[in-house]
Nucleic acid binder design. Sequence first.
RNA 1: GGGACCGUGGGGUAGCUUGGUAUCCUUGCGGCCUUGGGUGCCGUUGACCUCGGUUCAAAUCCGAGCGGUCCCA
Length: 484
Amino acid sequence: MSGEQELGITESKEHATGEWYAELVQKAKLADYAPMGGFIVTRPRGYAIWERLQNHLDGWFKETGVQNAYFPMFIPESYLEKEKDIVEGFDPEVAWVTKGGYDELEEQLAVRPTSESIITPFLAQWTRSHRDLPIRVNQWCSVVRWEATETKPFFRTKEFLWQEGHTAHHDAEDAWAEMATRLDQYERLYEDVLAMPVLSGRKPEHDKFPGAHTTMSVEALMPDGKSVQGGTSHYLGTSFAEAYDVTYIDEDEEERTAHTTSWGLSWRALGALFMTHSDDQGLVLPPALADPQVAIVPIWDDESKDDVLEYAEDVAEDLEDAGVRVELDDREHRNPGFKYNEWELYGVPLRIEIGSYEVEDDEVTLVHRPDGKEVTEERDGVIETVEEHLDTVFAKLYASAEETLEGEIREAESREEILGTIGQHGGYVKCGWCGDEDCEEPIKDAIAAEIVMVPKDRDEEPIHDECAICGDDAEETAYFAKTY
RNA sequence: GGGACCGUGGGGUAGCUUGGUAUCCUUGCGGCCUUGGGUGCCGUUGACCUCGGUUCAAAUCCGAGCGGUCCCA
């Protein structure tokens, strides 16, 4: 209603997080809702962010022995059924193709909910000797999980984009190390690229990937106190290798079963990113993912127009030559204020204002997106200056995300205390836990919080001697949190 | 899994109680104007979620469906 506000975000992140997020996604042109429930259309502005995230992760994968490949999106039912845990785990949410044209298919095809069951048989085929191992393939693709939940772009959609890596190794030790490597890379992605601190840990037995020996994850805390599972890495033991016959002849001419892993990171990372840094002005992006990284807004009047534009073009060219993604916003009919607001809505980390003042003094005025801080700097050395300021913006983002996590890991020693602490503050609550899923139930039922992780090291002593729920001896430390 | 609210041009809305010509703002497009935080003026395109029912007549009433948001589990 109130005319001028409608171009930007009208909901409050703090007071109406759900609506705010939905509005952010649409107004910043990241995604639209598709005509079928549960699906979204990722718009160029959103997809470009995904592509840049991909580039980082994909580069690291390739540096560490992973090759990309592509497997069919359809999986024959008989393949899916070979590993019984995975059937049970995914059965309720598999989409099936039963017809080709007008003809009923002889064997129905699953739309992949994940690809272990189509990839592992090929790892088996490609693995004869110990010399073939380790083998590592990754694919960037989409998967479909037909859950009947509400759509939240990038957080919950029936189809989502991700990468899934699948590897086979000689023994448990190698496979275990692989799982750790990928988890570290996910952690690095969050911390160094997305400017988000994360926790990493192991999933409790009852929440492991179906068929896995061990599942590890990185968890990020959102400003509303809920945790997001940001990436998972599984050590699958030999269960998949046995089901799909991944064996090799070792040096001693004995046949052995390989140990496999799989690991995935989805565009939920984008959801977490948007949710974490963005504000009531719109999107906020870390420099590594933003395009443009710098928006130059020229400010002219009749007399200064030519000089200002020339000066601004020159600055833009310098930056562009140096590899900075820069956009000179020389649109007519739009005043500077409009442009400021628009680039803020789109999450551009750094704005350069160039008007007659700057031209006269050989300067540029820089404004940081996260906090609106304005600094005037020399025109000379503008490339280094911009790079420094982009680094500063990254540091600001990281620092504020760190503040969100800071102090949000609390302890509790009873059921009531867990409920009270999460109810009041959100965040993580750690407590002693006997290891029994039944002890998670009362917490889940009462406030929909669950055990998001336990320490990676199985031998680590629990923080308390007794399970906070049942009072039996504690086996490990559980981290409870509400989740997305 | 349960409950609540909602669905009108690209976005935001009025109208719905009491059925009859669909309101205003904004965006888009064309033109004029021209810039230090969402300029102003003129012109113009564009909408009642779907299906069914009631009725002479449905955006409005009824039913179902689809979709969205929130809360609880």
